[in-house]
Amino acid sequence: MTTEAISSRLPTGAIDTSGPRGPRPKSVTIGRIGVYAFLILSALFFLLPLWVMVVTSLKTMPEIREGHLFNWPALLTFDPWLKAWDTACTGRDCNGLKPGFWNSVKITALSVPVSIVIAMINGYALSFWRYKGSELLFGILIFGAFVPYQVVIYPLIIGMRELGLFATLPGIVIVHTIFGMPILTLLYRNFFASLPIELFKAGRVDGAGFWGIFFRIMLPMSVPITIVAVILQTTGIWNDFLFGTVFAGRENMPMTVQLNNIVTTTTGIREYNVNMAATILTAAVPLVVYFISGKWFVRGIAAGAVKG
């Protein structure tokens, strides 16, 4: 006997059909209110300083001295922004943040691709072309991630000086590449390790070699993880202060260092509005990167970036 036969013989009126049906209505619970309250408060906590910075940067100095920290400017002015960008003084030079910005662009634009390409090849070799001692090498590399920077800076300065690269653009790029290597290699190795090894074997049977498999099979698959790497490196290198101060030299001083110089240079009065504008300008690049790439970042992480 089939089930249809059974159900068709049941009297339909026997069941009360007036009860709940379809999706359950959403109710506002205490818990939910609590969660939202917490989220709104935390957002305020982090946004308030930003608000203060923005309004301060748009006020004139006399208005700032009145001391109404949170108020919208009575007299809106963009002069502090122009000054921060173009004419603010760091020591004797009065060119604003502009040169620093372009230096940072140069450093970032070179360091990010160089470090990522090397890390990618490292990770690929370490996960697919296991050779004697590759595990040891990986261990050492990971250990590198835990060595405090301060320990290596002095020897690195000597090394760079001997190579004639100290205080040059290639010098700072090399430094960023070295210090990005442990985390980036780990990222790529784990990503490649999460791919089935049979994919690699199939490539070999099909006759592709080390570079063939890398470029034609692995590279197209590593787009999501590369987006993560680009974001990590771009923001990391842009925000760097220590290496920039030490290794870049006066010619290639990045924006962060220049910002510091502007803020700490005290010739006469402290121009809070210019300082605020300069700070926002410097932070703008990583902020924009986060806003644009947030979605991709999450997608990349979900694609196995943090697996293994």
């Binding site: 089935p196 049979e198 994919l199 074997k201 199939a202 490539g203 049977v205 006759g207």
Partner: peptide, 17 residues
């Protein structure tokens, strides 16, 4: 090398690119 052996291989996980 695998490619010079005159073999073709089919894997359990398909291993399609």
């Amino acid at each position: 090398e695998p490619k010079d052996r005159g073999i073709g291989m089919v894997f359990q996980s398909y291993a399609l690119y």
